[in-house]
Amino acid sequence: MTTPTVAKTAKLYIDGVFARSESGRVYPVGAVNVPRASRKDVRDAVRAARAALPGWSQRTPYNRGQILYRVGEMLEARRSEFVAVLGGGRPAGREVDATLDALVYYAGCADKLAQLGGSVNQVAGPYFTFTIPEPVGVVGVVAPERPSLRPLLEHVAAALCGGNTVVALVSEGAPLPGLLAAELLATGDVPTGAAALLSGLRAELLPHLGSHRDVDAVDAVGCSDEQRRDLERRAADHVGRVLSGGATGAAPSHRLALASLELKTVWHPIGV
């Protein structure tokens, strides 16, 4: 007896909605048609991320950590599904475990960034200054081609934990694990619009992500040197930042979370 199966349609994740590309286009990955996001999908995702930014960045860091931890719980519960979509076997299992590790790490990181990145500064005057890290804003994440799951979720979580909102391009050649991860974000209580996951052709989407004036930084971890230089040229026009920290294989680090933050220094009189 065979069990009837319902094939799942691969979808983008934009503004809290699982959607096909507004263009209706797809591209084949193996036997699956994967949505081929257009520049308008990028635009819609950035608009939603911008709208979600005040709410997400003003939550307490502790709450952001709780939510990222819950994303990890969702992954744990669906471990076998992710192992299967990653191709099965030991390597896939190790990647899921490493992803889980990274999620838990950045969940814990969320309420420690002020200590790790901030400082109280001595100055020559009757006052002191202190420096606090603040989210840079809407961050684009360009995930590496492979591995297709851990670097994506690691860099998304690193940007989210500091209070940024994220528009991420998943692996072009192996997009299914990344698109499936959208279900973790949705059920993990990440607020609507705060994180978007798009699949599509890099060559088509990168110029629009880089030149979008409302994208404050792009985490170019998955870009070639040439793509990174192009992003830098485009972002320069609106003083956007192109981040290149964090090698694909590195262990989770708070430095990655701090990379998408900017430092604000304010002064305070002594003894008042």
Partner: peptide
Amino acid sequence: SGAYQSADD
């Protein structure tokens, strides 16, 4: 310009 704009501007 071809580039999507920011409301901040």
